[in-house]
Nucleic acid binder design. Structure first.
Lengths: 227, 227
DNA sequence: GTGTCCATTTCGAGG
DNA sequence: CCTCGAAGTGGACAC
Protein backbone atom coordinates (compact mmCIF):
# COMPACT_ATOMS: atom_id res chain seq x y z
CA UNK A 1 0.00 0.00 0.00
CA UNK A 2 1.20 3.45 -0.94
CA UNK A 3 0.20 6.53 1.06
CA UNK A 4 0.78 10.05 -0.20
CA UNK A 5 0.13 13.35 1.46
CA UNK A 6 -0.14 15.75 -1.43
CA UNK A 7 -1.60 19.04 -2.54
CA UNK A 8 -3.80 18.02 -5.41
CA UNK A 9 -6.77 18.76 -7.62
CA UNK A 10 -9.03 15.91 -8.66
CA UNK A 11 -11.54 15.40 -11.45
CA UNK A 12 -13.77 12.39 -11.90
CA UNK A 13 -15.76 11.68 -15.02
CA UNK A 14 -17.85 8.56 -15.25
CA UNK A 15 -21.25 7.79 -13.85
CA UNK A 16 -21.27 11.46 -12.91
CA UNK A 17 -18.84 14.37 -13.02
CA UNK A 18 -17.11 15.58 -9.89
CA UNK A 19 -14.40 18.11 -9.15
CA UNK A 20 -12.14 18.72 -6.15
CA UNK A 21 -10.28 22.07 -5.98
CA UNK A 22 -6.58 22.14 -5.12
CA UNK A 23 -5.96 21.25 -1.47
CA UNK A 24 -3.78 19.03 0.68
CA UNK A 25 -5.17 15.50 0.99
CA UNK A 26 -4.27 11.87 1.63
CA UNK A 27 -4.04 9.64 -1.42
CA UNK A 28 -4.17 5.90 -0.78
CA UNK A 29 -3.11 3.46 -3.49
CA UNK A 30 -3.79 -0.18 -2.70
CA UNK A 31 -1.83 -3.07 -4.13
CA UNK A 32 -4.77 -3.99 -6.35
CA UNK A 33 -4.37 -0.59 -8.03
CA UNK A 34 -7.41 1.05 -6.50
CA UNK A 35 -7.08 4.70 -5.51
CA UNK A 36 -8.91 6.76 -2.90
CA UNK A 37 -8.54 10.40 -1.91
CA UNK A 38 -9.34 11.29 1.70
CA UNK A 39 -9.83 14.59 3.49
CA UNK A 40 -9.29 15.14 7.21
CA UNK A 41 -12.98 15.00 8.10
CA UNK A 42 -16.30 13.46 7.31
CA UNK A 43 -16.93 9.76 7.53
CA UNK A 44 -14.78 6.97 6.18
CA UNK A 45 -15.96 7.51 2.64
CA UNK A 46 -13.28 9.12 0.50
CA UNK A 47 -13.93 12.31 -1.46
CA UNK A 48 -13.09 10.53 -4.69
CA UNK A 49 -11.96 7.09 -5.65
CA UNK A 50 -11.51 4.48 -8.34
CA UNK A 51 -12.13 0.88 -7.55
CA UNK A 52 -10.08 -2.07 -8.80
CA UNK A 53 -9.47 -3.19 -11.44
CA UNK A 54 -7.97 -0.04 -12.85
CA UNK A 55 -4.69 1.25 -14.22
CA UNK A 56 -2.70 4.33 -13.29
CA UNK A 57 -0.69 6.37 -15.75
CA UNK A 58 1.71 8.92 -14.25
CA UNK A 59 2.95 11.94 -16.15
CA UNK A 60 5.89 13.83 -14.67
CA UNK A 61 5.97 17.55 -15.30
CA UNK A 62 8.84 20.03 -15.54
CA UNK A 63 10.16 21.31 -12.21
CA UNK A 64 9.16 24.80 -13.36
CA UNK A 65 5.57 23.74 -13.89
CA UNK A 66 2.88 24.42 -11.29
CA UNK A 67 2.16 20.71 -11.29
CA UNK A 68 4.67 18.07 -10.26
CA UNK A 69 2.69 15.08 -11.54
CA UNK A 70 -0.58 14.26 -13.21
CA UNK A 71 -2.11 10.83 -12.61
CA UNK A 72 -4.72 9.45 -14.91
CA UNK A 73 -6.60 6.48 -13.45
CA UNK A 74 -8.93 4.52 -15.73
CA UNK A 75 -10.97 1.37 -15.33
CA UNK A 76 -12.43 -1.02 -17.89
CA UNK A 77 -15.48 1.18 -18.37
CA UNK A 78 -15.30 4.82 -19.36
CA UNK A 79 -14.61 6.14 -15.86
CA UNK A 80 -11.62 8.43 -15.49
CA UNK A 81 -10.02 9.89 -12.39
CA UNK A 82 -7.47 12.64 -12.93
CA UNK A 83 -5.25 13.63 -10.01
CA UNK A 84 -3.14 16.72 -10.59
CA UNK A 85 -0.47 16.91 -7.91
CA UNK A 86 1.19 20.25 -7.16
CA UNK A 87 3.33 19.20 -4.21
CA UNK A 88 4.11 15.97 -2.40
CA UNK A 89 4.64 16.22 1.37
CA UNK A 90 5.00 12.51 2.03
CA UNK A 91 5.15 9.36 -0.06
CA UNK A 92 5.48 6.03 1.74
CA UNK A 93 4.95 2.48 0.60
CA UNK A 94 4.24 -0.37 3.02
CA UNK A 95 3.89 -4.11 2.65
CA UNK A 96 0.81 -5.10 4.64
CA UNK A 97 0.35 -8.59 3.28
CA UNK A 98 -3.07 -10.14 2.82
CA UNK A 99 -5.61 -9.39 5.52
CA UNK A 100 -7.06 -12.41 7.33
CA UNK A 101 -10.49 -10.80 7.08
CA UNK A 102 -13.40 -9.75 9.22
CA UNK A 103 -15.63 -12.01 11.30
CA UNK A 104 -19.14 -10.73 11.94
CA UNK A 105 -21.85 -11.84 14.33
CA UNK A 106 -25.33 -10.51 14.81
CA UNK A 107 -26.50 -9.84 11.27
CA UNK A 108 -29.84 -10.75 9.75
CA UNK A 109 -28.82 -14.22 8.66
CA UNK A 110 -27.95 -15.16 12.20
CA UNK A 111 -31.24 -13.77 13.47
CA UNK A 112 -33.05 -15.81 10.82
CA UNK A 113 -31.26 -18.97 11.94
CA UNK A 114 -32.24 -18.40 15.54
CA UNK A 115 -35.88 -17.79 14.63
CA UNK A 116 -35.90 -20.85 12.38
CA UNK A 117 -34.77 -22.87 15.41
CA UNK A 118 -37.31 -21.24 17.72
CA UNK A 119 -40.42 -20.22 15.73
CA UNK A 120 -42.43 -20.43 18.98
CA UNK A 121 -40.77 -17.21 20.06
CA UNK A 122 -42.72 -15.49 17.27
CA UNK A 123 -46.04 -17.12 18.14
CA UNK A 124 -46.30 -20.11 20.42
CA UNK A 125 -48.35 -22.26 18.03
CA UNK A 126 -45.88 -22.08 15.15
CA UNK A 127 -43.58 -24.72 13.74
CA UNK A 128 -41.12 -24.34 10.88
CA UNK A 129 -42.01 -25.64 7.42
CA UNK A 130 -39.06 -24.22 5.50
CA UNK A 131 -36.35 -21.60 5.76
CA UNK A 132 -35.71 -19.53 2.59
CA UNK A 133 -38.93 -20.71 0.94
CA UNK A 134 -38.50 -19.83 -2.72
CA UNK A 135 -41.11 -17.88 -4.65
CA UNK A 136 -40.82 -16.54 -8.20
CA UNK A 137 -39.88 -13.11 -6.90
CA UNK A 138 -37.49 -14.15 -4.17
CA UNK A 139 -37.11 -16.20 -1.00
CA UNK A 140 -39.43 -15.82 1.98
CA UNK A 141 -37.27 -15.92 5.12
CA UNK A 142 -39.41 -18.43 7.04
CA UNK A 143 -42.50 -20.40 6.09
CA UNK A 144 -44.24 -21.65 9.22
CA UNK A 145 -47.45 -23.46 10.03
CA UNK A 146 -49.79 -23.06 12.98
CA UNK A 147 -51.38 -25.97 14.82
CA UNK A 148 -54.59 -25.25 12.91
CA UNK A 149 -52.75 -25.88 9.66
CA UNK A 150 -52.70 -22.21 8.78
CA UNK A 151 -49.55 -21.15 6.91
CA UNK A 152 -47.60 -18.13 8.09
CA UNK A 153 -44.87 -16.36 6.10
CA UNK A 154 -42.25 -14.55 8.17
CA UNK A 155 -40.01 -11.73 6.99
CA UNK A 156 -37.01 -11.21 9.26
CA UNK A 157 -35.18 -7.89 9.49
CA UNK A 158 -32.60 -6.50 11.85
CA UNK A 159 -34.39 -3.17 11.71
CA UNK A 160 -37.99 -3.17 10.57
CA UNK A 161 -38.73 -0.40 8.09
CA UNK A 162 -41.24 0.28 5.35
CA UNK A 163 -39.27 -1.55 2.67
CA UNK A 164 -39.47 -4.78 4.63
CA UNK A 165 -43.24 -4.55 4.88
CA UNK A 166 -43.48 -3.93 1.12
CA UNK A 167 -41.28 -6.95 0.52
CA UNK A 168 -43.45 -9.23 2.67
CA UNK A 169 -46.58 -7.82 1.03
CA UNK A 170 -45.27 -8.79 -2.41
CA UNK A 171 -44.50 -12.31 -1.20
CA UNK A 172 -47.91 -12.73 0.40
CA UNK A 173 -49.68 -11.47 -2.72
CA UNK A 174 -47.82 -13.96 -4.88
CA UNK A 175 -48.11 -16.90 -2.47
CA UNK A 176 -51.88 -16.45 -2.14
CA UNK A 177 -52.25 -17.22 -5.84
CA UNK A 178 -51.22 -20.77 -4.90
CA UNK A 179 -54.35 -22.67 -3.76
CA UNK A 180 -52.35 -24.41 -1.03
CA UNK A 181 -51.28 -21.07 0.40
CA UNK A 182 -54.38 -19.03 -0.46
CA UNK A 183 -54.87 -17.97 3.17
CA UNK A 184 -51.21 -17.54 4.16
CA UNK A 185 -50.74 -14.90 6.86
CA UNK A 186 -47.74 -12.64 7.40
CA UNK A 187 -45.50 -11.88 10.35
CA UNK A 188 -42.94 -9.09 10.26
CA UNK A 189 -40.17 -9.82 12.76
CA UNK A 190 -37.33 -7.47 13.69
CA UNK A 191 -35.22 -6.38 16.63
CA UNK A 192 -36.69 -2.91 16.27
CA UNK A 193 -39.76 -1.96 14.22
CA UNK A 194 -40.22 1.69 13.25
CA UNK A 195 -43.66 3.20 13.86
CA UNK A 196 -44.27 3.84 10.14
CA UNK A 197 -43.49 0.25 9.29
CA UNK A 198 -45.78 -0.91 12.09
CA UNK A 199 -48.59 1.27 10.80
CA UNK A 200 -48.19 0.07 7.22
CA UNK A 201 -48.05 -3.55 8.38
CA UNK A 202 -51.26 -3.14 10.37
CA UNK A 203 -52.92 -1.62 7.30
CA UNK A 204 -51.87 -4.70 5.32
CA UNK A 205 -53.06 -7.12 8.00
CA UNK A 206 -49.52 -8.17 8.86
CA UNK A 207 -48.54 -8.92 12.47
CA UNK A 208 -45.43 -7.31 13.91
CA UNK A 209 -43.16 -9.07 16.40
CA UNK A 210 -40.07 -7.55 17.97
CA UNK A 211 -37.41 -10.10 18.84
CA UNK A 212 -34.59 -9.93 21.35
CA UNK A 213 -31.40 -11.19 19.75
CA UNK A 214 -29.49 -11.68 22.97
CA UNK A 215 -32.42 -13.49 24.59
CA UNK A 216 -32.87 -15.74 21.55
CA UNK A 217 -29.19 -16.58 21.56
CA UNK A 218 -29.51 -17.48 25.22
CA UNK A 219 -32.15 -20.13 24.54
CA UNK A 220 -30.39 -23.44 24.80
CA UNK A 221 -31.77 -26.50 23.00
CA UNK A 222 -32.57 -28.03 26.40
CA UNK A 223 -34.90 -25.16 27.15
CA UNK A 224 -37.31 -26.43 24.51
CA UNK A 225 -38.59 -29.06 26.91
CA UNK A 226 -40.22 -26.27 28.87
CA UNK A 227 -42.98 -26.17 26.26
CA UNK B 1 -4.79 13.64 10.35
CA UNK B 2 -2.78 10.85 11.91
CA UNK B 3 -1.76 7.79 9.92
CA UNK B 4 -0.38 4.67 11.54
CA UNK B 5 0.92 1.51 10.01
CA UNK B 6 0.57 -1.02 12.78
CA UNK B 7 0.20 -4.69 13.53
CA UNK B 8 -3.08 -4.80 15.36
CA UNK B 9 -6.08 -6.80 16.43
CA UNK B 10 -9.48 -5.12 16.39
CA UNK B 11 -12.80 -5.82 18.08
CA UNK B 12 -16.02 -3.94 17.50
CA UNK B 13 -19.08 -4.29 19.68
CA UNK B 14 -22.17 -2.27 18.93
CA UNK B 15 -24.84 -2.76 16.33
CA UNK B 16 -23.10 -6.06 15.72
CA UNK B 17 -19.97 -7.79 16.92
CA UNK B 18 -16.93 -8.02 14.67
CA UNK B 19 -13.38 -9.24 15.11
CA UNK B 20 -10.18 -8.70 13.14
CA UNK B 21 -7.26 -11.05 13.87
CA UNK B 22 -3.77 -9.65 14.41
CA UNK B 23 -2.32 -8.31 11.16
CA UNK B 24 -0.54 -5.27 9.74
CA UNK B 25 -2.97 -2.54 8.71
CA UNK B 26 -3.34 1.20 8.17
CA UNK B 27 -5.08 3.12 10.94
CA UNK B 28 -6.40 6.57 10.03
CA UNK B 29 -7.38 9.02 12.77
CA UNK B 30 -9.07 12.16 11.51
CA UNK B 31 -8.99 15.47 13.36
CA UNK B 32 -12.64 15.03 14.33
CA UNK B 33 -11.59 11.92 16.27
CA UNK B 34 -13.04 9.36 13.86
CA UNK B 35 -10.99 6.22 13.31
CA UNK B 36 -10.86 3.83 10.37
CA UNK B 37 -8.81 0.68 9.85
CA UNK B 38 -7.89 -0.20 6.26
CA UNK B 39 -6.42 -3.28 4.66
CA UNK B 40 -4.42 -3.31 1.45
CA UNK B 41 -7.29 -4.50 -0.72
CA UNK B 42 -10.98 -4.34 -1.33
CA UNK B 43 -12.87 -1.16 -2.02
CA UNK B 44 -12.58 2.09 -0.12
CA UNK B 45 -14.64 0.83 2.80
CA UNK B 46 -12.50 0.23 5.87
CA UNK B 47 -12.52 -3.11 7.67
CA UNK B 48 -13.66 -1.39 10.84
CA UNK B 49 -14.32 2.16 11.93
CA UNK B 50 -15.87 4.52 14.41
CA UNK B 51 -17.49 7.67 13.17
CA UNK B 52 -17.32 11.05 14.87
CA UNK B 53 -18.22 12.12 17.45
CA UNK B 54 -16.21 9.67 19.53
CA UNK B 55 -13.40 9.65 22.04
CA UNK B 56 -10.18 7.64 22.12
CA UNK B 57 -8.57 6.33 25.26
CA UNK B 58 -5.00 5.03 24.90
CA UNK B 59 -3.45 2.58 27.33
CA UNK B 60 0.31 2.06 27.10
CA UNK B 61 1.58 -1.38 27.99
CA UNK B 62 4.90 -2.58 29.40
CA UNK B 63 7.70 -2.99 26.87
CA UNK B 64 7.76 -6.68 27.82
CA UNK B 65 4.13 -7.13 26.97
CA UNK B 66 3.00 -8.61 23.67
CA UNK B 67 0.95 -5.48 23.14
CA UNK B 68 2.43 -2.00 22.89
CA UNK B 69 -0.84 -0.08 23.16
CA UNK B 70 -4.53 -0.69 23.50
CA UNK B 71 -6.94 1.93 22.15
CA UNK B 72 -10.52 2.04 23.27
CA UNK B 73 -12.75 4.15 21.03
CA UNK B 74 -16.29 4.90 22.17
CA UNK B 75 -19.12 7.02 20.86
CA UNK B 76 -22.20 8.48 22.52
CA UNK B 77 -24.10 5.24 22.06
CA UNK B 78 -22.86 1.92 23.35
CA UNK B 79 -20.54 1.21 20.44
CA UNK B 80 -16.97 0.28 21.30
CA UNK B 81 -13.96 -0.23 19.09
CA UNK B 82 -10.93 -1.83 20.69
CA UNK B 83 -7.63 -1.66 18.82
CA UNK B 84 -4.84 -3.74 20.32
CA UNK B 85 -1.54 -2.70 18.79
CA UNK B 86 1.40 -5.09 18.92
CA UNK B 87 3.86 -3.10 16.86
CA UNK B 88 3.95 0.33 15.20
CA UNK B 89 5.82 0.55 11.90
CA UNK B 90 4.96 4.16 11.14
CA UNK B 91 3.15 6.97 12.91
CA UNK B 92 2.79 10.29 11.10
CA UNK B 93 0.59 13.29 11.73
CA UNK B 94 -0.25 15.82 9.02
CA UNK B 95 -2.09 19.12 8.97
CA UNK B 96 -4.37 18.99 5.95
CA UNK B 97 -6.59 21.95 6.81
CA UNK B 98 -10.26 22.04 5.89
CA UNK B 99 -11.17 20.58 2.51
CA UNK B 100 -12.90 22.96 0.10
CA UNK B 101 -15.30 20.14 -0.76
CA UNK B 102 -16.63 18.21 -3.70
CA UNK B 103 -18.65 19.57 -6.61
CA UNK B 104 -20.90 17.07 -8.35
CA UNK B 105 -22.87 17.06 -11.56
CA UNK B 106 -25.10 14.39 -13.01
CA UNK B 107 -26.89 13.01 -9.97
CA UNK B 108 -30.63 12.43 -9.73
CA UNK B 109 -31.31 15.96 -8.54
CA UNK B 110 -29.95 17.37 -11.80
CA UNK B 111 -31.94 14.91 -13.85
CA UNK B 112 -35.02 15.96 -11.91
CA UNK B 113 -34.26 19.65 -12.57
CA UNK B 114 -33.85 19.02 -16.27
CA UNK B 115 -37.11 17.06 -16.49
CA UNK B 116 -38.89 19.78 -14.51
CA UNK B 117 -37.72 22.25 -17.13
CA UNK B 118 -38.69 19.98 -20.02
CA UNK B 119 -41.62 17.75 -19.02
CA UNK B 120 -42.52 17.44 -22.72
CA UNK B 121 -39.56 15.13 -23.09
CA UNK B 122 -41.48 12.63 -20.96
CA UNK B 123 -44.76 13.01 -22.85
CA UNK B 124 -45.38 15.86 -25.24
CA UNK B 125 -48.68 16.99 -23.69
CA UNK B 126 -47.29 17.51 -20.18
CA UNK B 127 -46.62 20.71 -18.28
CA UNK B 128 -45.17 21.03 -14.78
CA UNK B 129 -47.45 21.70 -11.83
CA UNK B 130 -44.89 21.30 -9.04
CA UNK B 131 -41.48 19.84 -8.33
CA UNK B 132 -41.09 17.94 -5.03
CA UNK B 133 -44.82 17.77 -4.45
CA UNK B 134 -45.16 16.83 -0.79
CA UNK B 135 -47.35 13.97 0.37
CA UNK B 136 -47.59 12.61 3.88
CA UNK B 137 -45.24 9.75 3.03
CA UNK B 138 -42.65 11.67 1.06
CA UNK B 139 -42.09 13.97 -1.89
CA UNK B 140 -43.22 13.11 -5.42
CA UNK B 141 -40.43 14.20 -7.76
CA UNK B 142 -42.67 15.89 -10.35
CA UNK B 143 -46.38 16.55 -10.47
CA UNK B 144 -47.44 17.32 -14.04
CA UNK B 145 -50.70 17.91 -15.87
CA UNK B 146 -51.74 16.90 -19.37
CA UNK B 147 -53.63 19.20 -21.73
CA UNK B 148 -56.78 17.23 -20.86
CA UNK B 149 -56.36 18.28 -17.21
CA UNK B 150 -55.26 14.80 -16.21
CA UNK B 151 -52.64 14.82 -13.43
CA UNK B 152 -49.46 12.76 -13.82
CA UNK B 153 -47.02 11.95 -11.01
CA UNK B 154 -43.43 11.32 -12.11
CA UNK B 155 -40.79 9.42 -10.17
CA UNK B 156 -37.28 10.17 -11.40
CA UNK B 157 -34.39 7.76 -10.89
CA UNK B 158 -30.87 7.55 -12.21
CA UNK B 159 -31.30 3.80 -12.43
CA UNK B 160 -34.82 2.43 -12.47
CA UNK B 161 -35.25 -0.58 -10.20
CA UNK B 162 -38.09 -2.28 -8.34
CA UNK B 163 -37.82 -0.06 -5.28
CA UNK B 164 -38.55 3.00 -7.37
CA UNK B 165 -41.73 1.44 -8.76
CA UNK B 166 -42.86 0.55 -5.23
CA UNK B 167 -42.17 4.10 -4.15
CA UNK B 168 -44.25 5.59 -6.98
CA UNK B 169 -47.02 3.05 -6.28
CA UNK B 170 -47.23 4.20 -2.65
CA UNK B 171 -47.43 7.83 -3.75
CA UNK B 172 -50.14 7.11 -6.33
CA UNK B 173 -52.19 5.12 -3.85
CA UNK B 174 -52.08 7.97 -1.35
CA UNK B 175 -52.65 10.77 -3.87
CA UNK B 176 -55.71 9.03 -5.31
CA UNK B 177 -57.44 9.40 -1.95
CA UNK B 178 -57.49 13.15 -2.69
CA UNK B 179 -60.59 13.89 -4.84
CA UNK B 180 -58.61 16.39 -6.90
CA UNK B 181 -56.05 13.71 -7.76
CA UNK B 182 -58.31 10.67 -7.80
CA UNK B 183 -57.31 9.72 -11.35
CA UNK B 184 -53.62 10.68 -11.15
CA UNK B 185 -51.43 8.57 -13.44
CA UNK B 186 -47.82 7.55 -12.95
CA UNK B 187 -44.67 7.82 -15.04
CA UNK B 188 -41.44 6.12 -14.02
CA UNK B 189 -38.51 7.97 -15.59
CA UNK B 190 -34.88 6.85 -15.48
CA UNK B 191 -31.72 6.79 -17.56
CA UNK B 192 -31.87 3.02 -17.47
CA UNK B 193 -34.84 0.88 -16.44
CA UNK B 194 -34.24 -2.74 -15.43
CA UNK B 195 -36.52 -5.38 -16.92
CA UNK B 196 -37.99 -6.41 -13.54
CA UNK B 197 -38.86 -2.82 -12.75
CA UNK B 198 -40.42 -2.40 -16.18
CA UNK B 199 -42.52 -5.53 -15.70
CA UNK B 200 -43.71 -4.47 -12.25
CA UNK B 201 -44.52 -0.97 -13.51
CA UNK B 202 -46.59 -2.40 -16.36
CA UNK B 203 -48.47 -4.58 -13.89
CA UNK B 204 -49.25 -1.46 -11.84
CA UNK B 205 -50.37 0.56 -14.87
CA UNK B 206 -47.33 2.83 -14.66
CA UNK B 207 -45.66 4.11 -17.82
CA UNK B 208 -41.90 3.82 -18.16
CA UNK B 209 -39.79 6.44 -19.93
CA UNK B 210 -36.04 6.23 -20.40
CA UNK B 211 -34.37 9.62 -20.54
CA UNK B 212 -31.04 10.70 -22.02
CA UNK B 213 -29.24 12.97 -19.57
CA UNK B 214 -26.75 14.34 -22.08
CA UNK B 215 -29.47 15.01 -24.63
CA UNK B 216 -31.65 16.74 -22.03
CA UNK B 217 -28.74 18.89 -20.96
CA UNK B 218 -28.22 19.82 -24.59
CA UNK B 219 -31.74 21.25 -24.92
CA UNK B 220 -31.31 25.00 -24.81
CA UNK B 221 -34.15 27.22 -23.58
CA UNK B 222 -34.43 28.61 -27.14
CA UNK B 223 -35.32 25.17 -28.43
CA UNK B 224 -38.63 25.38 -26.66
CA UNK B 225 -40.02 27.57 -29.42
CA UNK B 226 -39.97 24.50 -31.65
CA UNK B 227 -43.14 23.33 -29.91
C1' DG C 1 -34.70 15.43 16.16
C1' DT C 2 -37.27 12.31 13.20
C1' DG C 3 -38.39 10.59 8.75
C1' DT C 4 -37.43 9.77 3.98
C1' DC C 5 -34.66 9.11 0.02
C1' DC C 6 -30.24 9.19 -2.72
C1' DA C 7 -25.54 6.96 -3.48
C1' DT C 8 -19.77 6.86 -8.51
C1' DT C 9 -23.29 3.42 -2.58
C1' DT C 10 -20.18 -1.33 -1.19
C1' DC C 11 -20.70 -6.07 -0.22
C1' DG C 12 -22.14 -10.70 -0.44
C1' DA C 13 -25.05 -14.64 -1.89
C1' DG C 14 -27.30 -17.18 -5.34
C1' DG C 15 -28.84 -18.61 -9.92
C1' DC D 1 -21.75 -13.10 -15.25
C1' DC D 2 -25.82 -10.59 -13.52
C1' DT D 3 -29.43 -9.74 -10.09
C1' DC D 4 -31.06 -9.03 -5.75
C1' DG D 5 -31.05 -7.77 -0.94
C1' DA D 6 -28.35 -6.17 3.28
C1' DA D 7 -25.39 -2.69 5.46
C1' DG D 8 -22.49 -0.92 12.03
C1' DT D 9 -24.86 1.53 5.32
C1' DG D 10 -23.50 7.30 5.20
C1' DG D 11 -25.32 11.75 3.88
C1' DA D 12 -28.71 15.41 2.69
C1' DC D 13 -32.88 17.66 3.18
C1' DA D 14 -37.67 18.58 4.54
C1' DC D 15 -40.85 18.62 8.34
Amino acid sequence: MRVLIATCEVDYAGRLSAHLPMAKRLVMVKSDGSVSIHSDGGAYKPLNWMGAPCSIEVENRDPDDDLAQVWTVTNRGSDTLRIAIAEVEADQTYDLGVDPGLEKDGVEKHLQELLAAHPQSLRDDLSLVQREYYTAIGPVDLLCRAKTGQYVAVEVKRRGEIDGVEQLTRYLELMRRDPLLSTVEGIFAAQLIKPQARTLAKDRGIDCVTVDYDHLRGIEPDDDRLF
